[in-house]
Design a protein around this nucleic acid. Sequence first.
DNA 1: CATTTCACCTGGTGGC
DNA 2: TGCCACCAGGTGAAAT
Length: 283
Amino acid sequence: MPELPEVETIARGVHERVRGRRIVQVWFASHPQPFKTPAAHQARQLEGRPIVAVHRTGKHIVCELGAALGAPSGKQSGKNAGAQWIVHLGMTGRLLVTTPDAPVAPHTHARLGLSGGLELRFVDPRRFGRLDFRDLGRKAGFSAPGAEPLAIGSAEFAALFHGRRLSIKAALLNQSLLAGVGNIYADESLFRAGIRPHKSCGRLTRAELERLRVALNEVLQAAIRLGGSSVSDYVDAEGMRGFFQLEHCVYQRTGLPCRVCQTLVRRIVVTGRGTHYCPKCQR
DNA sequence: CATTTCACCTGGTGGC
DNA sequence: TGCCACCAGGTGAAAT
């Protein structure tokens, strides 16, 4: 499932391959609509615009778009200002850069034909993903509600969790607190910080919170270096798998010996999510 | 307001 | 072999 490192990997790959190209043709599937704004409106707005840059915010991929080719100046047009195409991959979403003649995978919901003979495709079997279009002439650019885990400082991080009663695992998954952490990296960072997943936020010491911030930062950076974790069907923009799943200490290692102390990894359910931890290393 | 639960989806898996 | 209940989990709406 795509979390921060996977989304970062995809955004970088897409950026490398499509930056500077223009959207010349847009096809959206008609029946299933995993779209925040109506498909027809998105398709109409996307066509003719250049892709200026692609980057990540939280778990969202943001494609920065320029004005449409030949759009008349003046407020009426709507295509003369910059815009954003925002992609959320949900659980099983893929954003792929292909050649136009590449076989179209099942559950392909969007195809953007680009200048220079490439296509940007959104594929999502379970349709948990979301596509959104934002006209920057009408509203501000997209920003994730939560803080950026790779940039946040000690005091701000501690303040996010201070005085809360819910478990630290549930808090890590709350995107309006921290943007980009999902089930894999919540479990892995709690292991590296030596903290029990169901421990209440309010009971964490300042030292534990700082250990968690550093552990989260390290695990996310390491995962980005390895192209993310391919635990189900995650692949990057070129269809390549990541390798960080080989470095997992607890996630999906139920019943296997802890890499540090050999105690068997345990699985519990916290707020409805499968949660993995070492009962000896994590207190 | 804070927190928890549930529906949304489909593919893969295990039991019978 | 086939069928089916069940699980995976990111998100947002509904419930508590």
